[in-house]
Amino acid sequence: MTEYKLVVVGAGGVGKSALTIQLIQNHFVDEYDPTIEDSYRKQVVIDGETCLLDILDTAGQEEYSAMRDQYMRTGEGFLCVFAINNTKSFEDIHHYREQIKRVKDSEDVPMVLVGNKCDLPSRTVDTKQAQDLARSYGIPFIETSAKTRQGVDDAFYTLVREIRKHKEKMSKDGKKKKKKSKTKCVIM
C-alpha cells in the first residue's frame, strides 16, 4: 500500500485542523484551538488504489514558523489553505509557496490551493482571484467548507493525484537520464 505524506499549511484560523478532522473523523470542530502540530493517518481508496494518507496539520501562528522547514522537508505534497473571508490569509499563500519551493529546492512541488469556509456569506476573496492565482502557479484550486464537508475529500484526493503525477514524471525523467548515460565512448 502506497503511503502519501501530505502537509496542510496556511495562516492561523483558516480551518486547516477543521478540514483535516472532517476528512479523518467526519465531524466539524467549530471551536478554535490553535494547533502546534498534529499528525493523522487514514486509509482510503483513490482511483481504485488503496493508500495510506499521513497528514500533518501544522501551526499557522507566526511564533511556530521555525518548525516549518522541518515538516516541509518531509512532506510530499501540500494543501495551501486560505479562508475566503480573510484576504490576508490569501496573500500569505505566496509566502508559504515560496518557502516550500526553497526548502524542497524545487520549482515543481505537488500543491493544491484550497479556499476554505465557502459556506460563509462574508467572502472577501473572489473565486476568480483564487483561480487566477492557482493557474499562475500551475496547481489545482478547490473551494471547501469544513463545516458542510463540501470539497473536503476532493481537496485531499486531488493532492494525492498531483503527487502521483509528480512521481510518474520524475521516474520518466530518471529513465531518460539513465538511457543517456548508457551511451559509451570508444577510443581507438
Rank of each mutant, 00 (worst) to 15 (best):
F156D: 02
R164G: 09
I187H: 07
D153P: 07
T50C: 09
V29G: 01
E63Y: 02
Y157N: 10
I142R: 10
E98Y: 01
Y137E: 12
Y96T: 11
A134L: 13
F90R: 15
M72D: 03
K182E: 04
C80P: 01
T74K: 15
C118K: 07
D119P: 02
M188K: 11
G60P: 00
V109F: 09
K88W: 07
N26P: 03
K182V: 04
D47V: 05
Y32H: 11
T2Y: 13
I187E: 12
D33I: 00
V125F: 08
D153A: 08
K117I: 14
I36H: 00
E31V: 03
G77C: 14
I84R: 12
I36A: 00
Q131I: 09
G48I: 06
S122R: 05
V160D: 03
T183F: 14
K5P: 06
V114C: 06
V125I: 09
T183V: 02
L79H: 02
V160Q: 09
S136C: 08
Q129V: 10
L23I: 08
I55R: 00
K167E: 05
A66G: 15
G75N: 06
C118H: 09
G174R: 15
V14Q: 08
K169I: 05
R73P: 10
Q70E: 05
T50N: 11
P121H: 10
Q150V: 02
D54F: 12
P110R: 03
Q131L: 06
G12P: 08
L6T: 14
N116H: 10
G151D: 03
Q129E: 13
K42H: 12
M188H: 14
G77I: 09
D69S: 12
R102I: 04
N86V: 08
A66I: 05
G48N: 09
K101A: 14
A83W: 02
I93V: 05
E98I: 01
V29A: 02
S17V: 01
E49L: 08
L113Q: 01
G115W: 08
Y96W: 14
D38Y: 01
I84F: 11
L23A: 09
R73H: 14
A11E: 14
H166E: 06
Y96L: 15
V160A: 05
K176M: 07
R73V: 10
N116W: 04
L120Q: 13
V7Q: 05
V14K: 14
K5L: 01
I187M: 04
D119Y: 04
R97H: 14
I84E: 15
D47G: 10
L113W: 14
A83N: 14
L52G: 13
D108E: 09
Y40E: 00
T50R: 12
N116S: 10
A155N: 01
G115Q: 10
Y40A: 00
Y96A: 03
I55S: 02
G12T: 10
V160N: 06
R123N: 11
K128I: 07
D57R: 00
Y157G: 11
I46F: 11
M188W: 08
F82R: 01
D105N: 03
E37L: 15
R97K: 05
V114D: 02
K104S: 13
Y157S: 10
G115D: 05
G48Y: 08
I21R: 01
E3H: 14
E31H: 02
K42R: 13
K175A: 02
E76F: 10
K104R: 13
R68Q: 03
H95L: 06
I24V: 04
E98A: 05
Y71D: 12
V29F: 15
V152G: 10
Q131E: 12
M72F: 03
Q131S: 08
T124I: 08
G151E: 12
V81H: 05
E107S: 08
K128T: 06
L19Q: 12
L23N: 12
M170K: 08
L56V: 14
E162C: 03
K178G: 07
K169Y: 14
P140A: 04
D153M: 08
D153R: 05
I139P: 15
Q61Y: 04
H95N: 12
I24Y: 15
E168G: 10
R97L: 15
Q61L: 10
F156A: 03
I163F: 11
G48Q: 11
A134R: 15
I93R: 12
R135M: 08
I21L: 04
V81A: 06
L6W: 05
K175N: 08
Y157A: 07
Q22P: 00
F156S: 02
R68L: 01
S65H: 10
T183G: 04
F156R: 00
I21Q: 01
D173T: 08
L79A: 09
D33C: 00
N26A: 14
K165W: 05
A18M: 12
Q70S: 14
E31P: 01
T58D: 00
F78R: 02
K176I: 10
T50S: 10
G15R: 03
V7C: 14
V44A: 11
K5I: 01
I24P: 00
N26Y: 08
K177C: 12
M67T: 03
S17R: 01
V109T: 12
L6E: 02
P121E: 13
R123P: 08
G151S: 13
K42A: 04
T50M: 12
T50D: 13
P34S: 01
M111R: 02
T158Y: 07
K16T: 01
F28E: 00
A134Y: 14
Q25T: 15
T74Y: 10
Q150L: 09
V160Y: 11
Y137V: 13
